[in-house]
Computed example of a mutant assay.
Amino acid sequence: MSCSRRNFIAGAGAVIFTTGVGTTAAISSRNSFASGEEEAKIKYGMLHDENACIGCTACTEACREVNNVPEGVSRLEIERSEPIGEFPDVEYRFTRDSCQHCENPPCVYVCPTGAAYKDEKTGIVDVHKEKCVGCGYCLAACPYQVRFFHPENKSADKCNFCRDTNLAEGKQPACVESCPTSALVFGDLNDPNSNINQAIQAKPVYRDKVTLGTKPQLYKVPFDKGEV
Rank of each mutant, 00 (worst) to 15 (best):
G114Y: 05
K171L: 15
S155Q: 09
A141H: 04
D164A: 14
A183T: 08
E177G: 08
T181E: 10
Q145C: 05
C162A: 11
A168L: 12
N166A: 13
D164N: 13
V133K: 10
T113K: 11
Q145H: 14
C138N: 03
E152A: 10
A183R: 03
D188C: 05
P180N: 11
T181V: 13
P173M: 14
V176K: 05
N166G: 01
V185P: 03
P112M: 06
A115S: 14
V185I: 15
C179D: 06
C175D: 02
K121T: 14
E120L: 15
F148L: 09
V133L: 12
R147F: 07
P151R: 12
G170A: 11
F149V: 13
E130L: 09
F161V: 06
K154N: 15
E177M: 12
K158E: 10
F161N: 11
E120D: 13
N166Q: 12
T181A: 08
S182R: 15
P143D: 02
K118L: 13
D157A: 10
V146K: 01
S182W: 04
C175H: 02
F149Y: 05
A140M: 10
L139T: 03
T113R: 12
D157P: 03
G170E: 08
L139E: 04
N166W: 00
L139D: 00
K154M: 15
K121I: 01
I124S: 04
F148N: 02
V127M: 10
K131F: 11
N153C: 09
F149D: 02
T113E: 06
C132V: 04
P180G: 10
V185C: 05
C179T: 07
P143E: 01
N153F: 15
N160F: 10
H128S: 13
P151T: 13
E120M: 15
V125S: 05
V146G: 00
L167E: 14
G187V: 03
I124Y: 04
I124E: 05
V176N: 01
K129S: 15
A156R: 00
V133M: 12
G123E: 05
G170R: 08
K129V: 13
A141Y: 01
C135Q: 03
H150K: 08
D126E: 13
A115F: 00
Y117H: 12
C179N: 06
T122S: 15
A115E: 00
G134N: 06
Q145R: 12
E169F: 05
G134Y: 05
N166L: 04
L167W: 12
G187L: 02
L139A: 07
A116I: 03
P173S: 15
T122V: 12
V133I: 14
C135H: 03
C138W: 00
L167C: 04
A183L: 06
V125N: 08
T113W: 07
A174Q: 05
H128N: 15
G187A: 05
S182K: 14
C142N: 02
K118N: 09
A168T: 06
C142R: 01
A183W: 02
P151G: 13
E152K: 15
D119Y: 07
D164H: 12
K131C: 02
Q172L: 14
A140V: 11
L139P: 00
C159E: 08
A174H: 06
D126K: 07
A183V: 09
C162I: 08
A140K: 14
C162M: 09
